[in-house]
Design a binder for these strands. Structure first.
Lengths: 227, 227
DNA sequence: CGTCGCTATATCGGCCCGATATGATGGACC
DNA sequence: GGTCCATCATATCGGGCCGATATAGCGACG
């Protein structure tokens, strides 16, 4: 699971461990808050397997530092002259993905394996690396799994005798799954109609203020699935 | 995390491992789908710690494992038990919670520790074993955690450049957290108004008659171990 | 008569996490 | 100017959970 995230980030640039964690936390947010206790072993694992290789580049550009060109820049230059290591706190180990690593990434991304919420979220977050049919398959596979699990629970839910608290937890969880299914179905529908912007589209998706999520008026509360 | 679930179920009746898993899956549903690979080690752990004890027999007061000292003797006992229970199955090992186990359960339930979604759901599902102030504290603690995490993410979300898929995942996850917060606030409100007030402190659990677990029915006074 | 399916317990390897240690650097405080 | 703290950065360790697998008893199906 971590392997997928790491390789996905390294697909675009070489990074060191600390920065991988930062990007995962900042951009993927709540989905992937990875701990160092799993990150560094995962990197060592991937390196041993030949999916990534360490590059001793202390000179790669810091990805989140926009060139403001002001005092900090000059100070950085001075520090570089003195210590011959720009922005380097401690010795960093940057990693680069290998050819084999790219194949591993593709395999993990399309993997048929069981996906929990985390794994699926990660796969979908990297879905731009998938060919469109595989994207659709990923979405529909996940939807089928959720539908099945929800059906199982709905069967048992009617006969169980639970107190207020347990019932609230169960209901809330089930509603969450139903909401996930709804979300997946919207994604599937959007995926089926070719919209013009896709493939490389990082420039196309920038200005998308028409917002599907932020200010949605009312969510068609048709299904009152409380039994 | 599993310890809480196991002790919570054993608070009401003695059960064997397979049945614990069944009840967890059927009643708690999507929240707690526990695997055997963690359940049986957890039971062994709890037994070694003295929080539960094994009762052999599962429906009668069969003397617990007479230490004859010879393996053949114990095998004979097993064979005899098999003959007395001709209905299918394999030899089962039922567990009963101990007094120390009840204290452990109370400690885990009110535990200040960090709670992820699973742990919190489990705690809330057993919230009837908590005194009302602790219930409220549990809800508000969780709510505060979610609010904080959502705020962190909302800050980083505005500046990140993500493609359509990653953005959709992040938005959906954030909405899920917002929905959880909403749910918690409804629960907090419901908890604050005393309304019917059917269960101030003691009569919260109604169990059907015939429970042999109630060996000592005279639970006079407040059995609430304060944390 | 084999084998499938269900109940039931148990172990193993692997992954992930939280806690902790270590080390280097720079800014804040006084 | 020295001390303390925060941040960046890598790494290890113990422990918990999971999926896969092994074992075992028994009823039912064909």
């Amino acid at each position: 699971m971590l392997d997928l995230a790491i390789l996905g980030l390294l697909e675009e640039q070489e990074l060191h461990g600390y920065e991988i964690r930062r990007q995962l936390r900042d951009s993927l947010g709540l989905l992937a808050n990875v701990s160092f206790g799993s990150l560094y072993p995962a990197l060592a694992r991937l390196e041993a397997a030949g999916d990534v290789e360490a590059v001793d580049g202390a000179d790669e550009v810091a990805p989140t530092a926009p060139p403001t060109g002001s005092l900090s820049g000059e100070r950085a230059v001075l520090r570089a002259r003195r210590h011959s290591r720009p922005r380097g706190r401690r010795s960093r180990k940057a990693y680069r993905i290998t050819g084999q690593g790219r194949r591993t990434f593709a395999r993990l991304l399309a993997g048929d394996g069981a996906d929990d919420a985390r794994s699926f979220g990660l796969r979908l977050a990297f879905a731009r690396h998938l060919p469109p049919p595989a994207r659709l398959a990923l979405l529909e596979r996940r939807r089928a799994q959720l539908v099945e699990r929800l059906a199982e629970v709905d069967g048992a839910r009617s006969e169980a005798t639970l107190d207020v608290y347990a019932r609230s937890v169960v209901e809330h969880t089930a509603e969450g799954v139903a909401r996930d299914i709804h979300w997946l179905e919207r994604l599937i529908e959007a995926e089926r109609k070719p919209d013009g912007q896709r493939a490389a589209g990082r420039a196309a998706s920038r200005r998308e203020s028409g917002g599907r999520v932020a200010g949605r008026p009312a969510m068609a509360g048709k299904g009152n699935e409380r039994n």
